[in-house]
Simulated scan of single mutants.
Amino acid sequence: MTVDMNSSAKEKAKLKWACRRGMLELDVLFMPFVDEAWEQLSEDNKQIFERLLTCQDPELFAWFMGHEECEDSELRSMVELILNRVKV
């Protein structure tokens, strides 16, 4: 059980590092999301979030600010999930 907790903590630490972006606007969305919602996500949604983090900052910024709509339905749903959590 300690191994699982340790690997989970390492996974979360890696994820938080990946959340550090070149744009403060993205940092303030991603960091709290990982801190507050990561554990409750399904495995599928965790993978989608990790895939979202591989996108370039300018396109992420455009999606989150509503300037463009992501064509990938899974990523678009994750963007909406994150934005809905921020609005609460």
Rank of each mutant, 00 (worst) to 15 (best):
A62E: 07
A62K: 11
P58L: 03
K12E: 02
E59L: 05
K46M: 15
P32C: 06
D44A: 10
F30D: 01
S8E: 07
N84W: 07
D35I: 01
I82W: 07
I48V: 15
R20Y: 09
R21G: 09
P32L: 05
V3P: 04
M23D: 15
R21F: 06
E11P: 00
R51P: 03
V86D: 07
V28N: 15
A18L: 11
V3R: 10
M5E: 14
M31F: 06
G22C: 08
S77E: 14
K16R: 07
G66T: 07
V3H: 12
P32K: 03
K46Q: 15
F61K: 09
V3S: 09
R20M: 08
V79C: 09
N6D: 12
E59P: 00
V34N: 02
G22H: 06
E74N: 11
N45R: 11
L26G: 02
R51S: 14
V79A: 03
C19F: 06
D44T: 12
G66V: 08
E25W: 06
M5L: 13
M23I: 15
E71S: 13
S77Y: 08
L29N: 04
L15T: 01
V79E: 02
S73C: 06
S77T: 06
W38F: 13
K16G: 04
F64P: 00
L60Q: 05
E25R: 12
K14P: 00
H67F: 13
E50S: 09
E39L: 12
M23T: 11
W38D: 01
E50R: 14
K16F: 03
M65F: 12
F64M: 02
K46G: 13
F64Y: 07
R21L: 10
R85P: 04
S7Y: 14
V34T: 05
K87C: 03
S42P: 10
S7G: 01
L81H: 05
M65E: 12
E39Y: 08
K10I: 14
S8R: 08
F49Q: 00
D44M: 07
E39D: 15
K14N: 13
M23P: 03
L24Y: 07
M31R: 01
C55Q: 06
L24I: 14
K46Y: 09
D35H: 04
R85F: 15
R85E: 13
T2M: 09
K87M: 07
